[in-house]
Simulated assay, not measured.
Amino acid sequence: MLYVFLFNIWRKLFNMRFFIYISMFFIYILISISSFADIGVVYKKGNSIHESIVKKILDFATKDKQNYIKVPFNVDATPQSISNEIVQNTNINTLFLIGDFAAKSGISTNLPGVFVNVINPVQCGLIDSSGNYITQLAGISMDIPLKNKMPIITSVLKSINSVLIVYNEIASDYLFRNYEKTLLDFNIKCLGVQADTENELGQILGKYIGTFDCIISFVDNVVYSFSSVNIALKFSILNKVSFISFSPQMVNSGSLMAFYTNYEKLCTQAYNILKEVIQGQYAGNQIEFCSEFSYSINKYIAKILKLKIDDKILNGAENVYEK
């Protein structure tokens, strides 16, 4: 009788333990499933920058065993047609959006996600003029905080008294405020002038000539276009005023130096934000800036401006142009 009694107790304990293990297993499965998402990666087909970002993001997703669905679109696509394609694919529940069109398309889906490589996030309806998010999407600005650039700028330009920044208040006020604060922290006068169109840039440069010794620009497609950039480059060379721009192409064309996104680092930063979004842990309320950057320098322009650039700065540049 004692053996039977002990056996019954052991069986009950075994069944209880088995039930607990089974319950824990199913809870683990449910948690695992909920922590994964089918990421819709939206990008323009044939765009080399977009496709390089896609490759990097998919590498990260594969390592994390995250499911993903590529949503490439052609040049004739519209934000609405892209949005419709995303919504029709019911497996997609999180978005990674590359470029202005992709970001616009993501808003109307109401799906959470991350945007990158957007030229004008204000115009796209992603943030307000102060840089605050106004949709369900988080993202990273294409620009670099000025404080990150200043060690290189002050090394190249040994003395800066006044900086001119021409910007559009609606498109890039949040960038201007960031730059203005940094310049004040460095005891440099900031001359901020608003422009409503690209055609005003030449007039502004002529009007304020002699009141600044450096022009600093950032990504603002209202002020800076191909034609207005050429005006700024000519003004810089003729008047021997340093022009700090935001793309290597501008340096190759005649600006002294440029700071711009390091896409490999951008992908790492963006994917980390994406993981937080998927897990419901992202708490940001303002557009983020690239944490790291690349820069290019034009030695020929430096010579015209009578600037001597340290070898350490030259060696750190992605591109050094000689003419």
Rank of each mutant, 00 (worst) to 15 (best):
I33C: 10
I152M: 11
I31R: 09
F176W: 08
T109G: 02
V223K: 03
Y321W: 13
N84W: 03
G113D: 03
N319T: 10
A103E: 06
N117A: 15
M24S: 14
T182F: 07
L13G: 15
N315I: 02
E198A: 11
D128P: 03
F60G: 07
F289W: 09
I165N: 08
L274F: 05
S242P: 03
V241G: 01
S108I: 13
Q203C: 09
S245W: 00
I49H: 00
E51T: 05
I22F: 14
V75L: 11
K189S: 08
V193A: 06
T268M: 15
A195R: 03
L58S: 09
S294R: 10
K181Q: 11
Y3P: 12
N272G: 13
F14I: 09
P121N: 04
K306Y: 14
K323T: 13
I144N: 12
M250A: 12
F7P: 07
F115V: 01
L97T: 03
K44Y: 03
K306G: 06
M142I: 15
N120C: 01
N8C: 15
S34W: 09
N199F: 08
Q249D: 11
F5R: 11
S253H: 05
S253M: 13
F60H: 11
S129E: 12
F218G: 02
L191A: 00
F18A: 10
P145H: 06
F186E: 15
S52E: 08
Y263T: 07
S245H: 03
T62L: 10
Q66P: 01
N74T: 12
D128K: 03
K265L: 15
V54A: 06
I153W: 09
T261W: 02
Y208T: 11
V163P: 06
F176E: 04
T109I: 10
Q66D: 07
K149D: 08
N178T: 06
T135M: 06
A270H: 05
E85R: 14
F289Q: 05
F18R: 13
G202Y: 09
T261N: 06
L58N: 12
C290V: 01
V118R: 03
V75P: 05
T135F: 07
S159M: 08
V251K: 01
G254I: 01
Y167T: 00
I165P: 00
G99D: 07
S172G: 09
A258F: 01
D196W: 08
L164N: 02
G210A: 04
A103L: 04
R177Y: 07
